[in-house]
Each structure stands twice: as structure tokens, then as C-alpha cells.
């Protein structure tokens, strides 16, 4: 599902096959992030990402049958990080890195925009962060 008309003005590089949902006006920050993530997606070991805010979302994950599982995981990560940080007065979570045995997830909050990058364990999350926050 893709709605290119909304994103057309900013001309973000939306990867072929990526699911794009958008409602309302364009958001330059969102558009810039979408462009960055499209580049990051090409990095070795990065197999997907989710970019979302209140108005739009882009989901690009290699194995499409796992989209819902990864989306659910990213939601759980955000909720749990909030709960873990709360007793230590760490409410303003900027980023969360979760590593499993096979893969890792980098979740970031940039204003209203939330992005999750899914990558293999060997991939560099530092490099991904640098690309998002130059």
C-alpha cells in the first residue's frame, strides 16, 4: 500500500515494496527521516525499518510476513523502556537499543517521529545512529 501523492512534494526515496500510510499534511522532518532511512536500509545487515508519527508511517521490512511481529516488538520496546526508566526518573527516552541472539532493534524518538531500525547483530547501530543524527 503506497500513497505517493502526499510525499511527492518532498520526494523522499521510498523503497520499492515499502508500505506507506499517510494522512494530513506533509512533515518535512518525517520526509527527511524517510530519506535517511531509505539510505540506511541499503546498509549491510539492515533488514528493515518502521518510521511513524501521528499522521504517517512507512514500513519497510524484508520479510513481509514478519511485519506485524516487528511492529508489535517495537511497541513493546517503547512501553517497557518507559516502565524501566520511570523509577530512575528517566522519562525522556531518546533511544533504545535491544539486542537478541539473532538481531537487534534500534528505536529512536525524534520529536513526534518514532523510528525503529531492524538489523542483524553484526550490523553497526552506531553507524545507523550517526546517519540519523548527523
Amino acid at each position: 500500500m503506497r500513497q505517493k501523492n502526499i510525499l511527492a512534494q518532498a520526494e523522499p526515496e521510498v523503497p520499492e515494496g515499502a508500505a506507506v500510510i499517510s494522512v494530513g499534511d506533509e512533515d518535512s522532518a518525517f520526509t527527511n527521516l524517510a530519506t535517511s532511512l531509505a539510505e540506511i536500509r541499503k546498509l549491510k545487515g539492515v533488514f528493515g525499518y518502521i518510521l511513524r508519527n501521528n499522521k504517517a508511517a512507512i514500513v519497510d521490512i524484508e520479510e513481509q510476513e514478519k511485519i506485524s511481529a516487528f511492529a508489535l516488538l517495537s511497541t513493546h520496546i517503547r512501553e517497557s523502556s518507559f516502565e524501566i526508566g520511570k523509577p530512575f526518573n528517566l522519562s525522556d527516552v531518546e533511544s533504545v537499543l535491544v539486542e537478541g541472539k539473532n538481531a537487534k532493534v534500534l528505536c529512536m524518538s525524534l520529536g513526534e517521529n518514532m523510528l525503529d531500525v531492524f538489523m542483524e547483530k553484526s550490523a553497526s547501530d552506531v553507524l545507523v545512529t550517526k546517519r540519523i543524527l548527523p
Binding site: 511481529a69 516488538l73 526508566g85 528517566l90 535491544v98 539486542e99 537478541g100 539473532n102 538481531a103
Partner: peptide
């Protein structure tokens, strides 16, 4: 889906 949870790193302000 990522093979269990091994490490978690939360960055606040």
C-alpha cells in the same frame, strides 16, 4: 523474533 533479549540500552536526555 530477535532470538530473545540479551542486552537493553536506554538513553535518556
Amino acid at each position: 523474533i530477535i532470538g530473545g533479549l540479551e542486552n537493553l540500552s536506554i538513553q535518556g536526555a
